[in-house]
Nucleic acid binder design. Sequence first.
DNA 1: TGTACATCAGTGAACGCGCGTTCACTGATGTAC
DNA 2: TGTACATCAGTGAACGCGCGTTCACTGATGTAC
Lengths: 187, 187
Amino acid sequence: VAGSYHHGNLRRALLDAAADVIAAQGLGALSLRDLAGRAGVSHGAPAHHFGDKTGLLTALAAEGYRLLGEALTEASAAGDFLEAGLSYVRFAVAHPAHFQVMFSPQLYRADDPDVVDARARTDAQLYGTAPERPGVAGPRDVAIAGWCLVHGVATLWLAGNLRDTADDPIELARRVAVSAFRDPGAA
Amino acid sequence: VAGSYHHGNLRRALLDAAADVIAAQGLGALSLRDLAGRAGVSHGAPAHHFGDKTGLLTALAAEGYRLLGEALTEASAAGDFLEAGLSYVRFAVAHPAHFQVMFSPQLYRADDPDVVDARARTDAQLYGTAPERPGVAGPRDVAIAGWCLVHGVATLWLAGNLRDTADDPIELARRVAVSAFRDPGAA
DNA sequence: TGTACATCAGTGAACGCGCGTTCACTGATGTAC
DNA sequence: TGTACATCAGTGAACGCGCGTTCACTGATGTAC
């Protein structure tokens, strides 16, 4: 919509630009003025949609939890613990900016109703597929352990600390999950 | 050394102040001018010791890898895989700023000789205690899996995402490690 | 013991910058009649 | 179909701020003789 006064979908454009900047340059490089420039709009415009910078990060976090929830839906419905873990890593790799913001709660309003709601839904899926390990741990402990494991894979990968260990983060996650959780007795 | 022209140990004081600020307010709140103020020194002084801001973060990362190496020494010498993992989490909790900086390599000069050296020593210890899991995975895969697991516990804990799951991060780490790695057949 | 001198560490003024936020405004849109 | 009006979205000038970095300087320290 070149030349027109109204942008059409500025909110979406700003969120996308923010994700791009964070993924490419990190959170430290994020500025509202820069985002406005990228969207081709004056630097005061973002205030209309997000109020302030924290508002934008809050929206990004809420969107992140929603996207993660969607990414987990299929594996969750199928009750597939391993696949849920792999989907978690896939999400982190596909949406590194959302992932980074979501887990930096001091940057946004973690008590925002949108965030709380989306997060609750996602948490339920995160805990839903974990099996019991008879004689070792109940499903809840297994769920937490699985979450920590895939979260570790995702953060170490995104920060570039596993780049010389593996080419494909999903293959790596699978290998790591098997190394940790498979019982020696199993086929 | 109040009133004297020379500080005495400004380098140390600046690193300590940086760790305090990062732990309390996050990386975004870090500024050389603020650190100088905290150390009671003019704002141009830090340049003498670190050159620029990246230099300070590089020093912090190198120190972090050195401290982590020391934290792992005992468990590494004893060949105790679980204890090495717990020491990793203990280090992250005791030195959250160092931990955060170390694993944000875009913030510092990761090819700095000091960093490379300290990191290599630490990596060796990180990989040294992992046992084979017969029929499941070799020691290297187990080491990576263990690293990812404790790294996940540490980052999730530091970001405040496990505060309602456990009181003590070390106890949590132990439980998580057992849930993942213990064989059902074992006593 | 005393003097000269080199070295080092910290000063403080100055530079230029990009930032978040506010606010009176104006252009565009859409609804009521 | 046409006019009046309310609402909304984006403008652009202005504010005040803290920042990193540079640089000629000065105070302090310690070494050589």
